[in-house]
């Protein structure tokens, strides 16, 4: 009995004994990097701070200026980037061919921030089954919600889809983006003037996700403007695809953002692309 009585307080002391446990929150000091490296192009890299998590209102991201960033290629070329505007660093020299590995490093807050990436090969066998599609212009400018369709009804429109194919025997990540090439292009759909019941003006580009297949279909209804579009097929490294992985932003299962950057955050990755042209024409 006595022994047990001694044992109990010992256990209680054991509970309160000091133990170094995570209980301090350190402020973030890792720079965020954003750089896409393509063969034959110059390097453009943005460096900025995180939006700090504070109780203050005026907490936002700021560019980091005055860095000395070195790029070293596996082909033996190395060069420094110059700051062209605050927090934006560019090279004058163009990058080498696909397959070259590039390392980046700079000093910040007493730490070396470093990353490495390989330039992927150009997408192979990229083709598109059409080069032009037709869309019907729609004018909703006089349309008021709840009052039925605009005068004159609709002209019937054929749905069009654009089938893209390429070779991908190794199941590498590919990604399709469309970019409007014409400035001052006309919108296919003229939106109502009172916009409160409608979504924001659509973006000029559309997005989807990196895929590992050999084909994709783009819906003709996705295009917002008449004019010429560049349909770009990117070939990517896995770290770019990782950006699309589900982000848990709740305290239940918060995930560390994926980054291949040592002592830093963001993306520093090689890309390669092939482009085909598509024209969106007005159906008469």
């Amino acid at each position: 009995m006595k022994k047990i009585l001694v044992f109990f307080p010992l256990l209680v002391i054991g509970l309160s004994a000091c133990l170094e446990v995570n209980d301090v929150v350190n402020p973030g000091d890792k720079p965020v990097i954003e750089a896409y490296l393509a063969p034959g192009h110059t390097v453009s890299m943005k460096v900025f701070t995180e939006i700090p998590y504070t109780t203050e209102d005026s907490a936002y991201s700021e560019p980091i200026s005055g860095l000395k960033i070195k790029i070293t290629g596996s082909d033996g070329n190395s060069f420094y980037l110059t700051e062209t505007e605050t927090g934006v660093y560019e090279s004058t020299q163009k990058l080498g061919v696909a397959g070259t590995t590039y390392a980046m490093s700079f000093e910040h807050n007493g730490r070396t921030i470093a990353a490495e990436t390989i330039l992927p090969g150009k997408p192979e066998g990229y083709s598109m089954d059409v080069t032009e599609i037709y869309r019907v212009a729609r004018d909703f400018s006089s349309f008021t919600p709840g009052q039925g369709p605009p005068q004159g009804g609709f002209q019937q429109e054929q749905f069009s889809s654009i089938n893209l194919t390429w070779n991908n025997p190794e199941n590498l990540y590919h990604f399709i983006a469309a970019q409007l090439l014409d400035e001052n292009a006309t919108q296919i759909v003229t939106r109502p003037s009172s916009d409160s019941n409608f979504p924001q003006r659509p973006p000029r580009r559309f997005n989807n996700q990196p895929i590992q297949t050999e084909s994709a279909t783009v819906n003709g209804q996705s295009f917002e403007y008449f004019g010429r579009y560049a349909i770009i097929l990117y070939k990517l490294n896995a770290d770019y695809a990782a950006l699309y992985e589900n982000q848990n932003t709740t305290s239940q299962n918060i995930s560390t953002p994926v980054s291949t950057i040592t002592n830093g955050l963001g993306i520093f990755t090689g890309i390669n692309a092939d482009t085909l042209l598509l024209t969106v024409k007005r159906q008469q």
């Binding site: 998590y53 990604f175 580009r205 918060i254 890309i271």
Partner: peptide
Amino acid sequence: YTSIIGAYDITLLDGT
């Protein structure tokens, strides 16, 4: 619980 130090935006290849 695990809180956050900060947050940031990355511009993707399609401009978003």
